[in-house]
Design a protein around this nucleic acid. Structure first.
Lengths: 160, 160
DNA sequence: TATTGTTATACTCTATAACTATA
DNA sequence: TATAGTTATAGAGTATAACAATA
């Protein structure tokens, strides 16, 4: 019986991960880093950030949506949403309005400039996934989408 | 032809996401927030954080691994890894050693305390996924793992 | 009393670049 | 000249709690 003295790994492929490669959180993190890296490489030059674009896009789809509901849906903390929204307002991309029936609330809409920003970048944003070569074939990609959507409790709206 | 005036959404389910629900980055973010929330709810009381545990676990599996290689494998920035490692050293969980053949480098090993920490928490950490009820059945979960592993370029080590 | 949004603070992680000591 | 790790700084995102205005 020979006991192997472990030699330190010399390259990334050498590094043992064992059960870590079966941890959902770990895999999601690696995947997200990879996706974001590709995203910035591709679209960072336009000053387009995924979180920001998502917020504007959802306001575009849901004119008059309240800040809190937007934060809840996108899983962004209310306090952070306040800062993002103020930033957008300063850039002239959104307009805020207090509705008469609840003067605590704030309804959000895109300004014409905001609509312009969204339509100018929507194609680049949404076709990004498709343009990137991935190790997954189209069928596997569709499966991955479906599983993630189910996992997070979203019914696929794009493929009804 | 009636043109519907869009009414602001009143609840999360009402919020239209359209093509956003087909964006990989968006889905990964939602999934990760969900997983991390569940993780902290479950294991936060032990001061166990996913990133930290992963680092210790990988050192445990790969004694003598260099800091840079560790950072590369876990996709943690080198500058940030320096801080994490120093923190672990201050807590007595890891030991650093400069090898003779390359005095620039630093080899990392767990101290007995570090080994104790890892073995004390490994079961809780790795069984976390399994204990959590998810909307996915076991077969779907296995599929999701396999697809994510393939996406990030990991061969499944746990199920060879 | 509870809710909507705001403010303030602190912490984590990231991004970047300049620095040291070795090679 | 290049590499391994360090330091410093700035920024994004998050977590938390206290607060004002309104319901």
């Amino acid at each position: 019986m020979t006991r192997t003295i472990p030699r330190p790994p010399a390259s990334m492929e050498d590094v043992a991960l064992d059960r870590l490669s079966g941890s959902l959180g770990f895999l999601l993190r690696l995947a997200q880093v990879q996706v974001f890296e590709a995203f910035f490489e591709d679209l960072g030059q336009y000053g387009l950030r995924p979180g920001e674009f998502s917020v504007l896009y959802v306001i575009h789809l849901n004119p008059g949506i309240r800040q809190g509901l937007l934060a809840q849906r996108l899983r962004i903390k209310r306090a952070h949403m306040t800062k993002m929204i103020r930033n957008f307002e300063e850039r002239g991309l959104i307009a805020r309005r207090t509705p008469d029936d609840d003067r605590r609330a704030i309804e959000l809409r895109l300004t014409p400039e905001g609509e312009g920003f969204v339509s100018a970048h929507a194609e680049a944003f949404f076709s990004h996934d498709a343009r990137r070569p991935t190790p997954l074939d189209p069928k596997e990609q569709a499966q991955l989408f479906a599983l993630l959507q189910k996992y997070v409790g979203l019914t696929p709206e794009t493929t009804p």
